[in-house]
Structure formats: C-alpha cells, structure tokens
Write a protein that binds this DNA or RNA. Sequence first.
DNA 1: CAAAACCTACCTATTGGAAGGCAGTTTTCT
DNA 2: AGAAAACTGCCTTCCAATAGGTAGGTTTTG
Lengths: 190, 190
Amino acid sequence: MPIDTKTALLDSAERAARTVGFDGFSYADLAEDVGIRKASIHHHFPSKANLSVELMQRYLAKFEALRAEFKETPKSGGVQLSTVIDNYRAGLDGGKSLCLCVSFTASRESLPSEVSQLVRRFRTMITEWLEDAFQLGHSDGTITHVQDPEQEAAAALSLFEGAQLAARAQEDLALFDNAVLLLKSRITQN
Amino acid sequence: MPIDTKTALLDSAERAARTVGFDGFSYADLAEDVGIRKASIHHHFPSKANLSVELMQRYLAKFEALRAEFKETPKSGGVQLSTVIDNYRAGLDGGKSLCLCVSFTASRESLPSEVSQLVRRFRTMITEWLEDAFQLGHSDGTITHVQDPEQEAAAALSLFEGAQLAARAQEDLALFDNAVLLLKSRITQN
DNA sequence: CAAAACCTACCTATTGGAAGGCAGTTTTCT
DNA sequence: AGAAAACTGCCTTCCAATAGGTAGGTTTTG
C-alpha cells in the first residue's frame, strides 16, 4: 500500500517549491516524480494556484500544531528560541531548501492572494511565538540582554529567514550558523 | 536621442527580476516594456542565462563602486552602517522590490553557475563592508555593544535580507523598519 | 453500483531561441 | 578620396518544447 497520492503530490510539490521555487516546477515534473500522469494531478488540484493554497495551508497548520504542542508542555524561553532556530536550520536541508514561507514570498506575484494571506498568518504566528520566547527568556533568565521582546522577535524572524538565504546562496550550512551565532550565544544553558 | 537600448533592457530586466523573480518574466515582457521586438533582445543578450549574468555583473559593479567611494572619504562606523541599511531600505521600493542578490538566491536553480559566483562575491563584499563598519564603529564609539565584528557582519547581512522579505511579504516598509530597529538603536548620533 | 482515481488524447498560449534580411554606420583597402 | 567589407541594431518569420488545462473514457475501490 503506497502512500496517499494527494499527500505524495503535496510532498513533492513542497520539496520542489522550496528548492527550485514555485515558478521552477511544472505539473509535468510533479507527475514524473510521483509516478502519475500529468492530467491526473488536476483531479486532486484543479489548478496550480489551488495547489499553492493547499500547500501553504498544510505548512501553516503543521507549524501551528508544533507551537500548540509547545504551549502545553512549557519550556524555558531559551529552549523555545533554540527550537525555532533549529527548525529553520533543519528546514534548509543542507542549503538546498528554503522555508516555504520564504520561497512563496519571493515568488509572490505568481501566486493567488490567498497564499499571501496565509504567509502573513504564518509570519504573525512565528513572530508571536518568538515574542513569547523572548518575554519568557527575559523573566526566567535563559536569554540575556533582552530589550523589547516585540522588536527582538521581528529582528529574529528576519535574521532566520535571511540566514536561510545566506546558506542557500552558497549551499553551506555554516553560513546559517554564522549568522545566528551571536543570538545563540545569548541563550544560557539550562 | 533615447537611452541606449541595451541599458534600457538591463534596467527593465532588473526591475522585473526584483519584483516578479527571474522565472517570472519573459523576453516577451521585456520586449513590450522596452518597445522592441522580442527576437531583437537576442541581439543584445543571446540567451536569458547571458542576461542574468550581465545583470548581476552590473549590480555587483555598482555596489563595489559605492563601497570604494566610501573608502576614500572615511566616515564613522555608525554612518557606514546606516548607509548600508538605508540602501537596503531604498532597494525595497516600498515593499515591491527585492535586492537582486536575494531574488537570484531564491531562483538559483534557474540560473547559470556564473551568477551564483557573482552572488557569492556580492555577499562577501557587503559582509566585509559591514565588518569594517562594526570594527570602526567599535573603536570610534559610534556603534554600541559590538562583540565580534565578523559575527556582527554575518548577522547584519542576514537581518537586512530577511527584513526585505518581511517587508515584501506584506508590502509594508514598516516591517523592514521594525526588524532593523534594534540594530539601529545601537548607532549613536554623530 | 457509484464514486473516486486515474488514464489517453488534445488544446491553446507561451516559452526561449534560430535563421536570415536589411538599412545605416564605420572601418579597411586600394 | 572612393569603393568594398564589416559591423550594429533592429526587424520578420519560424520553431520545437513546454506551460497549465480540458474532455471524456476506463479502472479501481468502498
């Protein structure tokens, strides 16, 4: 029993979008990758615009779930910040892949406005998560030198997304690590 | 005497690449924008790959010249850092446009490796510029809390590129400003 | 059996690009 | 100096490949 075809399509499309960009792959590529005929994709996703929406919806839901999980079993601010950093690092896949949110922001003009809305929600959610982490890290002492948590959160998100670009530019994870090193050094062991 | 056609093509292509991405525009779009026949573009740029290279070359040269200019008439570290920030902000064009380096990094897979090399050189150059600025800002006292200038530079570049993405995601300059606010507050008046 | 999943076969528009022509300017040769 | 050759810049015409998408039939499955 092979995996659900629709899921396989979403997986393949997500990988493609994150590595070659949304304009960089076609239904034909997808079909070959999944092992299905091109026209059959339309059965699951009537249009490519449709696919992009479902792609972003799933991506958002996944991270919302992850955050909800963290809200239940409370960790320190430092651990939460580390978790987010590690997630962005893991998402790089060695410098080949970007966060879907980053990729879709870059090719915004080829996407339906619904995707932009979802990207916005994604960014807001991550920013709130980071804000909470900085707030908490400040009070529990696991993050040093915390100024305004809101400003810290905005800066951190940009830093992570930029660090992903840096790593991708030279397909070298070290560039990501280098960019976040200063922030990481503010997290105290616990 | 109208502007040089080749320059007009480069200008149009740069605008397009930065607003809709390299995969987001075609020779046909370019032709219409410049007021020339599509096939005539091949006279100036045999292939689109060729165009991308010349685009990035010009972009790199422009910023190398800017930096050289600043090296001659020495400014404070704080002023230099502010200059770079302002440049990234201005390049946003209100949230519609990205740095060519960011755009080309995102659509890396559709570009010749020569472009990747140039992007690399671009990033190295800006990083060095920032490193010098932090170094200088530390000694002349125009930037506070400077730790390792090399790490600061890597973080700053990522911050700027990420902040551009943030602003573009919601087509709102305020998001850029918000992301760089914390860093900017470390620059003392002079 | 009906719905879901997938197929073959097409379609239209667009993609980047090739081939070759042609007027005007510049360079080269006698 | 004047003719010939070469170059520049743009054109028209054409092309194979690919894009996303549609129509309608067949297989698979609950």
